[in-house]
Design a protein around this nucleic acid. Structure first.
Lengths: 219, 219
DNA sequence: CAGTGGTCTAGACCACGCA
DNA sequence: GCGTGGTCTAGACCACTGG
């Protein structure tokens, strides 16, 4: 274990144990330099990383302090559906329902299947200004999501997650009863501030379960 | 802008623009030292941060490479409900429905209100072994979530997000029709591997919208 | 205005892994 | 072997800010 790791884990342990509480000042850098017998650069690197992880807050002239408990936040994984279903050991397939071009927008609709059952109804817009080569792709065997993953470096994404009831048409495509609860994930993706794609994915409520993990200091 | 920031943003720009594609090798540290006229420590700090952000991958003897496109992931904010509703400028209140102790577990049920309407039905278990002082708290005016935020440093959390239909009892408490879609968030929280709390929060589908943002390099 | 953290330098030694 | 990144040192100057 490196010196930097020792400094970090010692401080983490004291904070997690409650020995140092939010608002408490932790030792100055020069004090840590003395107690660990290392250079200031090493101490600084350790504290910088703890600060980036949100565990401490550093203030010039005042010192470093245990940060207030963080807002609940978690890393939400929104994997490629094909890869996710394959990882569960189920057969995956994509069935294209519709594909048409409307001006500079390519509109694609289809259903993802897992183990032979409809799993997700996808309605997607691809902005051809950002991804002109998508106009050449039929999307009849590969889903737009998988294709885009390999072709477009996106730089920003925003997800909205809601619960909605399936209407009759959606329910038929998903082979479920109309009016049942579904998870609706809407994702907008940009590349350098230019919109790349907008997708709505509708999951039957009983066939999908989003998971978000949070482990402090993981950043 | 510091030298380290210049190095990082230059590399980010080249990757995002597609000039450097996944798998490409980026310049060696000593080459960046030469082109930026700075010390190796500064270059190393910049590359270390880009690697932590997942933009590049560093391999001894081989160099540093543009990383493969990341799995879709996003930071999901699950804020304290009271703070969130207050931030929207709506009146917030918590109404306790039930509080009882079952062995080492404290069970609390209540409803969060926003602007006078029920907003979230909360069913919570607090493990008294981890939070003994919760046994002294009535939770009749302050919600368990807000109270726990200020009293328990948690170290790990796991969220599950599903869409469900409200049953008759739930619907009555939320002043909505039974069978309508709701977002169900289940959160388990640990402190040093000891369970702290387990909460289920049920939101009417049309009154809540989770948002998850992703900005690469934010870590 | 004094002391803190923020940044940077010019070295050094080490461990790993490709040739 | 030998060049890469990984870590560390012992300094330095600066900017911010609290007292």
């Amino acid at each position: 274990m490196t010196v930097e790791e020792r400094i970090r884990s010692d401080i983490e342990a004291r904070v997690h144990s409650g020995e140092w509480r939010p608002g408490d000042r932790i030792p100055f850098e020069h004090e840590l330099v003395a107690s660990y017998g290392c250079s200031r650069a090493t101490v600084s690197k350790a504290l910088t990383r703890l600060a980036r992880a949100g565990l401490i807050e550093r203030r010039r002239k005042a010192g470093s302090f245990v940060a207030d408990p963080q807002v609940h936040s978690a890393v939400l994984e929104v994997p490629d559906l094909a890869a996710m279903i394959a990882a569960r050991g189920e057969a995956y397939c994509w069935k294209l329902l519709d594909r048409r071009v409307d001006g500079a927008e390519l509109l694609v609709t289809g259903v993802h299947h897992a183990a032979g059952r409809p799993f997700c109804l996808e309605t997607r817009t691809i902005f051809l200004a950002a991804v002109p080569e998508a106009g050449e792709e039929s999307f009849d065997t590969v889903s737009p999501g998988s294709w885009l993953l390999g072709h477009v470096p996106w730089t920003r994404a925003r997800h909205g997650i809601r619960a909605v009831e399936a209407d009759a048409g959606q329910a038929a495509l998903l082979e479920m009863a109309a009016g049942k609860a579904c998870l609706l994930i809407e994702r907008r993706t940009w590349r350098m501030d230019a919109p790349v794609t907008l997708v709505e994915q509708l999951f039957p409520g009983d066939r999908y379960d989003l998971v978000a993990e949070f482990r402090p200091g993981a950043s």
